[in-house]
Design a protein around this nucleic acid. Structure first.
Lengths: 259, 259
DNA sequence: ATATAAGATGACGCAGTGTCACTTTCAAGC
DNA sequence: GCTTGAAAGTGACACTGCGTCATCTTATAT
């Protein structure tokens, strides 16, 4: 039997001395013996046991659970492993929700341009409402095919590049609101928005129109669970869009295009 | 100014009375006033503030952080949001590792048939080794194309149905070791294994052979980071396989097949 | 014998409540 | 105005898993 002083054990396992003493205190890992001066002495039996403890900790079990597992001779491993797996899944869901909420705030700040409590307030409104109401409103306004298309819409709390560009474009547009809606800067943004619209919703004009109507009504937007965009920005956007579309048609006419 | 007693506030927000008192104590949410008898009285200002606190808690911030955010007039939101997002990602990684380790134990128990500390010991060996060594050993034994194929191998800690069936088959085989390797039960399992091999590694005989050689050497298996399968089971499997292949060839010969 | 490293013990702190135990206040009915 | 029961108050301990002092003792090498 080789005797291992506490610091040795600490080095070999990476567990701090403090923790080893704590494990002794709660009876999880008791040293093989002690010197007359009460210094702890471990053996390789304890070394192995400590490694087991480390491993079980990596699985996320609490020291209490580990203690039970180690002491009990016949332990129902499958059950506790499955429970633990279940627990991990729940935690993962929580984290996903946190992630998505965090993104929503970050992106809202991009759109709003300024950081303020107003952003938080808006999101509190959104997150506070009953999701089933949202669902029924969506089903009421759109047919089945259109409801599916709704899931393709850019979203405040998603991280895909497509949504990100929409958010960025909105943010830029907002900062340009002091300019004229037919200024080149504004028109370039609107052109890009139109391109993106065509990419995803070409031939779906009626859907896009319906969506735009909802967007323009703050109440309806809220019921849909859409991030509230301020009225002025929407009006500015509509104006700029109108100008853009008109010019586009003129150019096509000049070039003698028929379609 | 409407005055809200503590229980009212509790009901409206879902925060317990105890927690509200604690928030008062740490100065996070101080009631608007108190009755002469020291009962707390809140107003809708505090109601809104409490909702903000709830929201920020959903983002995973600590009460201290929330306190800072609320009290400071000019807070750098973006930075703390990004930090928090970062933190969430780290937690997610931890959970993924836990999940995969948990699956490894669960699956190992299936293969071993019995639940025992030996399983844990094996996995401790595996998880304890330096992953870079594993990497270099793999690169040393296999060429580039083959290394890619390695990632298609069934794995103890994955949850895909393919891996699951391999695990299940191994577990069944182990329980049948007392039978003769040419018993129908055993042969059916070996046939299924062979089918699965063909599904994924048809035309890759040399790769499969090389892998099998490694499997048969406990040392090499360990260096590869493969779950240790006991020698007897491997030999039993090889024997059964040999019988299976021989019979298959005989049948083909009988049927007068040439290839 | 002495210096010094290593060890021991004990206590506080952290985060966010739950839970007891005991006292006081409020509001309402009489 | 008095009684009563509900609601509110305060204070303290518990939980998890250690980190981090501070203070005292032991082991070890010279």
């Amino acid at each position: 039997m080789n005797s291992i002083p506490i610091q040795e054990l600490s080095k070999q396992t990476g567990i701090t001395v403090r923790t080893l003493r704590y494990y002794d205190q709660i009876g999880l890992l008791i040293p093989a013996s002690k010197t007359p001066g009460k210094h702890r002495i471990y053996s390789d039996v304890e070394l192995r046991k400590l490694q087991q403890i480390q491993f079980l900790k990596k699985l996320g079990f609490s020291l209490q659970e580990i203690s039970d597992m180690i002491s009990s001779r016949e332990w129902n491993w499958s059950t506790s492993l499955m429970n633990q797996l279940d627990f991990v899944h729940k935690e993962q869901r929580k984290l996903s929700q946190m992630e998505s909420a965090l993104r929503a705030v970050l992106h809202s700040i991009v759109v709003e341009g300024e950081t303020s409590w107003a952003v938080i307030q808006k999101l509190i409104q959104l997150s506070g409402q009953d999701p089933s109401l949202k669902q029924s409103f969506r089903n009421q306004m759109f047919d089945e095919r259109e409801v599916e298309m709704l899931s393709l819409l850019p979203n405040m709390n998603s991280a895909d590049p497509d949504s990100l560009e929409w958010i960025a474009l909105l943010g830029q547009l907002k900062r340009l609101m002091e300019n004229s809606p037919d200024s080149p800067d504004v028109q370039r943004i609107v052109r890009r928005m139109d391109e993106k619209r065509l990419e995803h919703f070409e031939e779906e004009d009626s859907f896009v129109d319906k969506l735009w109507e909802i967007r323009k009504s703050p109440d309806q937007s809220e019921q849909m669970g859409l991030y509230p965009i301020e009225q002025e920005l929407l009006e500015f956007m509509e104006l700029a869009f109108h100008i853009y579309v008109t010019r586009k048609e003129e150019q096509q006419t000049e070039r003698g295009e028929t379609s």
